[in-house]
Design a binder for these strands. Structure first.
Lengths: 220, 220
DNA sequence: ATTATCATTTGATGTGTATCAAAGTTATTT
DNA sequence: AAATAACTTTGATACACATCAAATGATAAT
């Protein structure tokens, strides 16, 4: 949440996010088609969002962690346009969107914050489009790992190791790859001494090498 | 722009979009890195937005036509995060974002409208991710054509013919394909009698066949 | 503890699209 | 009108990733 509010304003913000909701691993926070009422601020846990088409194909559109906001896909049609599934036991703050809008009109800093969050999501999706449209498997995985590390690091965790919350298949779905290809890319990085992998645990041995794969030309 | 405003409110909205800007074909409306100040409502013309990486790779992230809003990528960092280029001579309304925010606080209907526009963009990008991650070349092209047709039809134009404003290469960049692949898919559709193509002119002979390609399972 | 289930790895082979190349077409410039 | 540049089409070949398959390793259930 943004800074720079007085006591009275903080009170209103507090009231807005009063309600909590627990979501167990594997459970849905919301489903595509559900009536949209609220945005959700993740307090703890880890989510994936995904869209599906009728023939069963699924595209993971994002992975979200503590401190991030989900649900903005629902604003345009008053119904959710993707599914949000907890990848580990999670707790979210429920923020009724009508209240967010009301309060935004009173508090320019909140208004600005909401706009930035939505804009950030648009920009993030732009880079995923670049990734899906232009990058090769190993570049995609390197970009993915670096992004996760950066976000975890911003939360005070190590920038050299992480525990993946998702399966190879889910990573593949996000990256537009099959799970076998993801597995092979992990193995390749491991053979080259760039990372150490033991199932979901990943240790980064050579972050520079990862960055070089992600962005080859800056090193030529 | 949204409906349901009184005379006084309409006046304020009018003032907000007072300034116009002409952009000639091939010119930039804004560039990645430019300071963000305004959203732009396209009055006439046709744009593409794209992101680039240092080694020259480019990803077209969208095509925008009259009535659509661009520039929301700039809100999060106060700098634009993509390029917007006119594909034909265009005119836009400049909407200083500070004014949009000010007025949004007064006019809930405008506030809601802004939120919906941003949410719509998020949802659109979700479907592009599905397209890039899961669909084959012909499905992508069918989806692309159907989407263009639907948007043109909503503007009172034919739903059975269109003139493309972009090159095969730009279509390919948007769809994560090379221009040759796009060309071959056009030729294939043409051979099958689904469309008639003469350069940028496209006539849809069998819309149902296109929908079937885009979404095979609903017809089995 | 044992079985069953699910996730991951690795190998062999197939395929859709990229790449390379050249010709044809349209638009622009002089 | 001719020349040039830009765009498009089509063919031949290459390659990255998908698919199919089987083994291994982890996790959950009985």
């Amino acid at each position: 949440m943004p800074a720079g509010f007085n006591v009275d304003e903080m009170k209103k913000l507090d009231d807005m996010v009063e309600k909590r909701r627990r979501v167990k691993q594997g459970e849905l926070l919301f489903n595509s088609g559900d009536t949209f009422t609220s945005l959700y601020a993740i307090r703890t846990g880890f989510f994936k969002t995904c869209v599906t088409i009728e023939d069963g194909r699924e595209q993971v559109t994002g992975f979200q962690m503590a401190g991030e906001i989900i649900g903005m896909d629902g604003i345009v049609t008053d119904r959710h346009n993707c599914n949000a599934i907890a990848l580990e036991d999670a707790e979210v703050c429920v923020m009724p969107f009508a209240m967010v809008e009301d309060l935004s009109r009173e508090l320019p800093a909140l208004q600005r914050h909401v706009h930035k969050i939505m804009s950030r999501e648009i920009v993030r999706e732009n880079s995923v489009m670049m990734l899906l449209g232009n990058m090769r498997a190993e570049e995609r995985l390197a970009a993915f790992l670096l992004n996760l590390l950066q976000r975890l690091h911003a939360r005070g965790l190590s920038q050299s190791e992480l525990v993946l919350r998702m399966t190879r298949e889910e990573i593949g779905s996000y990256l537009g790859l099959k799970l076998e290809t993801v597995s092979r890319a992990f193995s390749k990085f491991s053979e080259e001494g760039i990372i150490e992998v033991k199932q979901r645990y990943v240790k980064i041995l050579a972050p520079e090498a990862l960055k070089k794969i992600f962005n080859p030309q800056t090193y030529f």
